[in-house]
């Protein structure tokens, strides 16, 4: 039984087809990368799984349970969390309140307290800033807060949308370190990225997406060697210029 099983999913906005009949899956504890250029439909896919975008057709199952008609809140309660592109932290709430909002579905005060402490250990930078309004944090701090906020709900399946977007390399290291920790802890991860090199380094499998369709699927090492990643991201002509770096390190 796959943790996440998406079959033949189609999402349409007005006259635009964002996703055209995609089928992907994530196994228990697996980290799967979803790579593609802007407009490929990656974000739409995450939001459809999260329950804030309604699909035109197709099924989404989590642990064999069909999510059709389930509210976004109920999906969080069922262990599905998303860290959106651009973080979307609550800028007018302080860091600590952002974490507490992430625990909205939980009642046990002591456990919530223990979890906020755990987040502050995982991201010491947030501990220093706990009373600051989230809108005043740097991009990297906001990214850490967005991840920590999602973790407060105890997700079993975490979806991250371009966690490295707009971050300095050092900060991206920090974020990917945290993703590595989660992976070790057994969380299933669906990782949307344009930064394929980063994503491949932590992923067990990868899908390439373009214009709402899948163009390739496989082990990151295989995809990286084929040069198909560059073709998908930059187009056939540009791929030759960008070249294929064959020095990508892949975790077994």
């Amino acid at each position: 039984m796959n943790h996440l099983q998406i079959d033949n999913l189609t999402v349409v906005y007005g006259a635009v087809r964002a996703i055209a009949g995609i089928s992907i899956h994530v196994r228990q504890g697996e980290t799967v990368a979803l790579i593609g250029p802007n407009g490929a439909g990656k974000t739409s896919l995450l939001f459809t799984v999260a329950g804030v975008v309604a699909p035109r057709s197709g099924t989404i199952k989590v642990n064999d349970r069909d999510l059709a008609g389930m509210s976004a809140e109920a999906r969080v309660a069922n262990g599905i969390s998303v860290v959106p592109e651009n973080r979307e932290v609550f800028t007018k709430l302080n860091v600590h309140e952002n974490l507490l909002v992430g625990a909205s579905l939980r009642k046990d005060r002591a456990a919530i307290q223990a979890d906020t402490d755990r987040m502050y250990t995982l991201f010491p930078r947030l501990a220093e800033r706990r009373q600051h309004m989230a809108g005043f944090l740097s991009g990297g701090e906001q990214q850490m807060l967005a991840i920590a906020r999602a973790l407060m709900a105890h997700p079993k399946l975490l979806m991250l949308d371009e966690p490295s977007l707009g971050l300095a390399p050092v900060v991206t290291d920090k974020v990917y370190e945290a993703i590595g920790e989660l992976k070790k802890g057994g969380t299933s991860i669906l990782l949307v990225e344009q930064n394929s090199e980063r994503a491949f380094a932590v992923s067990d499998r990868a899908y390439l997406m373009q214009a709402g369709r899948l163009v390739a699927e496989g082990a990151p090492a295989q995809l990286a060697q084929d040069g198909i990643v560059e073709q998908t991201l930059f187009g056939r002509a540009a791929a030759r210029i960008v070249g294929t770096p064959n020095n990508i390190q892949v975790t077994p």
Partner: peptide, 22 residues
């Protein structure tokens, strides 16, 4: 709790639902 949830819904209703606020 209801207060910060209200502020969260006020600022970004979609994100509030995505972290489990009813």
């Amino acid at each position: 709790k209801i207060g910060y949830q209200m502020r969260a819904v006020s600022e970004n209703p979609r994100m509030a639902r995505l972290v489990g606020v009813n």
